Simulated scan of single mutants.
Amino acid sequence: MNLYAEAHNGALFVRVGEERLDAAVAIRFKDQMREIAAQPAHRIVLDLGQVIFLDSSGLGAIVSVMKALAPRKIELVALTPNVEKVFRLTRMDSVLKIHPTMKAAIMGEGMRDVG
């Protein structure tokens, strides 16, 4: 599982460097996210721009991390069409803030629902 983290203006930006976030990597994703999120940050922005496949295990891993890190918020950025569809169909797009681009996420602008 390749996760790359960078702190910027009190936020932690984490890029998922995998094409698939599925049952094969979900546990490693959760474990690494918990380690990375030990850094102080008021918000965590998860860049899913390289992820082209997300199954229920991957979605569950993101939700699990979201719950574990509360009250800090997890935001998503750069969803690919297939991943965006999963969030829309499960209505998780109404639970998580989604930014269209990394620039919008950094600026705190351009938040949108994917639905």
Rank of each mutant, 00 (worst) to 15 (best):
P40T: 09
T101M: 15
I36L: 09
V114W: 01
V114I: 13
I106L: 15
G10D: 12
V83A: 10
A104H: 06
M66L: 12
P71F: 10
V63C: 11
I106M: 14
N82R: 15
A37E: 01
V25G: 10
G58C: 04
A104I: 02
P71K: 04
G58Q: 05
M111P: 00
E6N: 11
A26L: 01
V45C: 05
V65H: 06
D113Q: 11
E75I: 04
M111C: 11
L59T: 00
G49W: 03
V45K: 01
G115Y: 03
G110K: 00
P71W: 07
R43W: 04
H99Q: 13
F53S: 05
N82S: 14
P40H: 10
S57T: 02
A37M: 08
F29W: 01
L54Q: 11
K30G: 06
Q32D: 15
A23T: 00
V51G: 14
D55T: 00
R43E: 12
A68C: 08
E6H: 07
R34V: 12
E109M: 09
E84N: 11
R43H: 09
A37G: 07
R15P: 01
K73R: 13
G10W: 10
I27A: 14
V16A: 12
R15A: 10
L59F: 01
V86C: 02
E109Q: 13
K30P: 11
L89N: 05
Y4D: 13
E19S: 14
D93Q: 02
R15N: 06
L54F: 08
R34N: 15
M102H: 07
K67R: 14
G10P: 05
P71D: 11
I27S: 14
L3A: 02
E84A: 06
L21S: 08
N9H: 14
